[in-house]
């Protein structure tokens, strides 16, 4: 049990996909304009990571080594398609605002990275916890970035006004803001970890 928790928590802190490994940055920057979008993207990606981890781990002994990457991609693409269709049916507004970044989960390096580095070498239960940890770590990073951008750029948090006299800086919900926030956050994290 302790080992499983370790697999889970490493994705959130020590090997956080966004801040530590700098993986999956494209969707992180593109959809983090509001907390709702960030959360939606995080949950969708978590579903795909866990799902593909389970299937790949279950059939890992049947996949020939040479064509494993194409096999992984097919499995991942299947889960992405499921997410796409579910989102379109039940959350059309979210699906609209995430746009092409829902199908783009298929080329998210976190997903393929976990399949290659973990699920193809470990058992199902471990892979579930690994996938959950990575997914939660990714979601947490997305929520942090999108909260910063939403507060500074729109003056709201999850749609609620922060302070009446605050005049939001539009830049933060536009493209340059995403690059600025991620650059400063990465620098800040480097600074803190160097200090330790």
């Amino acid at each position: 049990m302790k080992k499983l928790l370790q697999e889970f928590s490493k994705g959130i802190f020590m090997e956080n996909p966004t801040f530590r490994l700098a993986l999956g940055l494209c969707p992180t920057l593109a959809v983090s304009t509001s907390v709702v979008n960030g959360l939606g993207m995080g949950v969708a990606a978590t579903f795909v990571i866990v799902g593909s981890n389970v299937i790949i781990s279950a059939i890992r002994n049947f996949i020939p080594g040479k064509i494993r990457i194409p096999c992984f991609i097919v499995i991942i693409a299947t889960f992405v398609t499921i997410v796409e269709l579910i989102m379109k049916a039940f959350l059309p507004a979210l699906s609209n605002s995430l746009g092409i970044f829902v199908p783009l989960i298929v080329v998210n390096c976190i997903v393929l990275g976990r399949a290659e580095a973990f699920a193809s070498r470990h058992g199902i239960v471990k892979s579930i916890f690994d996938g959950l940890g990575m997914g939660v770590g990714f979601t947490a990073a997305l929520v942090i970035i999108s909260a910063i951008r939403e507060i500074l750029g729109n003056g709201t948090i999850v749609g609620l006004m922060v302070a009446r006299s605050f005049e939001p800086a539009l830049l933060f919900i536009l493209a340059p803001g995403a690059l600025l926030v991620i650059g400063l956050l990465m620098g800040g994290i480097n600074f803190l970890s160097e200090k330790k």
Partner: peptide, 20 residues
């Protein structure tokens, strides 16, 4: 470049400026 900003963080800052 200040130590913690080296490499990736400063690259993002440059990208931010270019994006502007």
């Amino acid at each position: 470049v200040p130590g913690p900003m080296k490499n990736m963080p400063i690259a993002f800052i440059v990208a931010f400026l270019m994006s502007m």
